[in-house]
Amino acid sequence: MKRFGAKLHLITWTREEDSPVASSASERWVRQAIEGDRKAQKKIFDSLAPKMMALCLRYMGSREDAEDVLQEGFINLFGKLDSYSGSGSFEGWARKIFVNTALMQLRKTDALGLSDDISEAHSLTSGEASAVQQIGYKELMRMVRALPADARTVFNMYVLEGYSHKEIAQELGCTEATSRSKLNRARARLQEMIKQSE
């Protein structure tokens, strides 16, 4: 095995994909992964896992829950690979699977607890909006994770995933007004945290 050790001197360690998944490569991996090709499944995992981990972290708040959702999401993804029609980006299709997986987990734990409470309407000031650029990703992620589960969910679905309030209401079983209210609440809480961090 010393020979093996000598060979390892040549390698560099990287676990992150620096370039987005090429469409032709992803289609080939998908085809192979459907057939049970282990290598293709690993390539899909390696290309999507870091981004999906960040997504799961935004939805779940805690890292442990995010890892569980990530794992469950990939199992669901590989189980539904044959339903991928090829239209639209593979990453976008995968993202929806992970969002649904996260929502299912949140419903299980009854963390959403959405109610038609619109009393906390709030509006942003111009100064608070620009402060987002200054705090950086890690800090913002920490703040988003700190939001209440219901507000965090709506914020993620509206701001990051591009759901409309109508779609959010259908998905979460609430009204559009509640969705708007929760989004405003999320923004207000984030603004407070940004202010406190300055």
Binding site: R15, E16, S130, L140, M141, V144, L160
Partner: peptide, 14 residues
């Protein structure tokens, strides 16, 4: 602004 920071974020995977 929030989307720009969070959309393409990546996290380490255990």
């Amino acid at each position: 602004q929030a989307r720009n920071l969070l959309a393409d974020a990546r996290e380490k995977v255990p």
